Simulated scan of single mutants.
Amino acid sequence: MRIDAHHHLWDLDAVAYPWLMARGEARFFGDPTPIQRNYLLAEHRRNASGFGASVHIQVGAADPRAEARWVQSVADANPDWPLVQVVFCDLTAPDLGAGLDHYQTLTTLRGVRQIVGRAPGEDAATGTQALLDDPRFAEGLRELARRGLSFDLQLIPELYEGMARVLDQAPDTQIALCHAGSPHDRSPEGLAAWAKALPLLSGRPNVACKLSGLGMFDHGWTPATIRPIVETCLAQFTPERCMFGSNFPVDSLYSDFATLTAAYDALLPEAAKPAVFHDTAAAFYRLP
């Protein structure tokens, strides 16, 4: 059984997603128009042939708690598909403890994602990277560790150095690096710079890496164009700290699920597949 360690679901009648439904706004990942519709577990299960469990990642709901409760209801209604979730919680909030207490009533809770960086242009506008200079962020990461929760880390290579200083202060927090650390510059020089900076994260035993979302900065990707990223992550993290994530339905903008998994089947050494497609995610997110 394979595990999809990074995907989203949404029911637009149940939960509002302002970013998704915005009209005429260009985003770094492309035009969201084709995915401005419900994407439910039944469709994801049809897409994910050969998979049998998954990790839902929070995806910018107007009401993050409503999203988390909805995901819990989906999991409860589908016991034959183990589904756990990573929720949004502001680690710098003065009421962080109460917020985490609320989420910990959900049996599907495994961790938190608070995005540090998406893409250079958008980060300049949102200022999310300011988290790196906020001492409450590091303390929030430590609180996750105390509660047995992990953190899904999304950021771009320019922020690795600052994030490394934060992680120095939270060595016990289990970190899942989303989207291979978002190497957005896919030129040879850009990939070389990313690979050189990556040890700031890969050198930490508490950091695992998601091979996910690689189409967001390469909309016409092929196995050949993502090969350097996959091979670098396997070399630096080892397969035992790498896991596959589809990033669907966002990455459905660039390929279907079968094409995506076929690419990884071709790129991954046979010996690495049990870890990348199952074992790493099963251990990290406590799945079967």
Results as ranks from 00 to 15, higher is better:
G30S: 15
L20N: 11
S150K: 11
Q114A: 00
T238F: 13
Q169H: 13
D133H: 15
H179N: 15
A16M: 09
C233F: 15
F237W: 08
M163D: 06
F88G: 08
L211V: 01
P32D: 09
L267G: 01
N247K: 14
P228E: 08
D90L: 06
S182A: 11
A14S: 14
I229A: 09
Q58H: 12
G148E: 07
F88E: 02
K273C: 04
R136P: 02
A98P: 10
T128I: 15
R27Y: 14
T92P: 03
F29D: 02
H219E: 11
D218T: 13
D265W: 04
L200A: 14
P223C: 07
E240W: 14
D31W: 08
F257M: 01
L12C: 13
A68L: 01
D172V: 09
P199R: 13
T261F: 01
A53N: 00
G60D: 14
T33M: 12
F244V: 04
L149M: 13
P223K: 07
L41M: 05
K273F: 07
P171W: 10
A75E: 03
L141N: 05
A5G: 03
A193Q: 06
G213M: 06
T128D: 14
V71S: 01
S202T: 12
S246C: 04
R147M: 12
E161C: 07
Y264K: 03
T126I: 15
Y254W: 13
F151M: 10
M21L: 07
L201A: 07
Q154I: 14
A195D: 06
F151R: 03
P274E: 12
R110T: 01
R165D: 10
V230D: 05
Q174N: 15
R286E: 14
G121D: 05
L155I: 13
S252E: 12
T238C: 08
S49W: 10
Q129L: 10
Y39C: 04
A192R: 12
T92R: 04
E67A: 11
A271H: 11
R37W: 05
G117Q: 00
T126F: 08
I115G: 08
E139D: 15
V59A: 06
A145W: 10
